[in-house]
Each structure stands twice: as C-alpha cells, then as structure tokens.
Amino acid sequence: MNRNYILLTVLMLVLAVGTLFLTTDDEPKQIAPEELLQEIIQPTRYVTTDQVAKMIIQGDPSLLMVDVRPAAEYDEYALPGSLNIPLEDLLNDGNLGYFGVPGIKVVFISNDDIRADQTWVLTKRLGIDGTYVMKGGLNKWMQTIIEPAQPNADAPSVDHELYAFRKGAQIYFTGAEAATPDGDNVEVQVRRREKTNVAAGGC
C-alpha cells in the first residue's frame, strides 16, 4: 500500500467529519442594510421625554423602559419602572426576549442618545420592531421634567401648557414639596400674653 494514499484518505476523512462540527447556523439573521438605513433616518424612532413622562404617569401598560447604562449607574438613578439591560449584556441570557413583543413599546434610555442609539441599531439589525430611543436621554429628562425651565411671559400658550405639564410631572416624580410641616416636628410656640397690668397701680 502506498503510504501517501493512506495519509490522504485519513486527512480527507478527518476534514469531512470536521464539517459536522462547524456551526454557522447560530449566526443571527440580519435585515438588509438598505432597510436598516431607511429605519435609521425615520424620526419616529425617537420619543420625547414628555411622551415618556406622560406614559409613566398614565401607567401605560404598553410601555417598557429599558435602561441600557451599566448597572452601577442604574443603581444611582433610574426612571421608575425601568428595566436595566446594559448594552454589553444585550445579547446574553435571553435578554432579547423582552423585545419584539406585539403591542409593547420598548424605549431605550441612557444618559444621552448614544448608548440607547447603539442598542436600537443592534435590535433593528436583528429585525426587532417596536423599539424606540428616548431623545436626549436622562440629561434631557433632568432638563425638561425634573427641572423644567419657565417660559417667558410672552411665549406661546403651548409652551405654557407644556410647562404646566412638566411642572406637574416634576411633582409626580420628585414628590411635592410639603407645604405644611410634619406634625411631629412642630414646635408649638406658646405666646404668653404679656401681663400688662401688673402693679400698674390701683383702680
């Protein structure tokens, strides 16, 4: 027997059997680049902080807020009811199962738009619909909802309506500042009536 033939036979067999262990199917399916570009330039992929605030206040059940910042930042401050899925963990532990549920609007939140946008692009490339980005992120949230700026007196009435809404939302999210002090801490100041007629003389 020619030794080369045996060697080549074994090599070919090993290579062929090796193809059984190639896993190409677990590569995620992607949408076409043209489609992604179409979606990226749509302004409707953004929601404003006001819309988010309104939905939270109304208890909109179709809203799912996903905070994509690292867990440490999430622990420091986060919107009430938001879910923390850091961008790095997006594809881990079945996290993708939260997205693409019919009728659920997923809103990505980060400090600004950037991380949220990155997350949005990732989910879009995977062909998941119903994901949005909170425009301006938590920075914008702070500026508009937590510390809304009062419009000028001559500003259009819509601005004043918006300000009124934001002011209300501010109270909702920060808690109203107590107008009356707590009962426990009230110091009762007893004002004694001055004695005016002590030794003032006879009748």
């Binding site: 033939y5 036979t9 070919m12 067999l13 062929a16 193809t19 059984l20």
Partner: peptide
C-alpha cells in the same frame, strides 16, 4: 449539508 459531505466522502474513499 455537512452530513452529505461526510457520506459522499466516505463513499468516495471506499470507492478509491
């Protein structure tokens, strides 16, 4: 496809 690849390879080598 890899299953067919292995089957064909085995058949081919046996034929050789």
């Amino acid at each position: 496809a890899p299953v067919f690849a292995v089957i064909f390879t085995v058949v081919a080598l046996a034929a050789f």
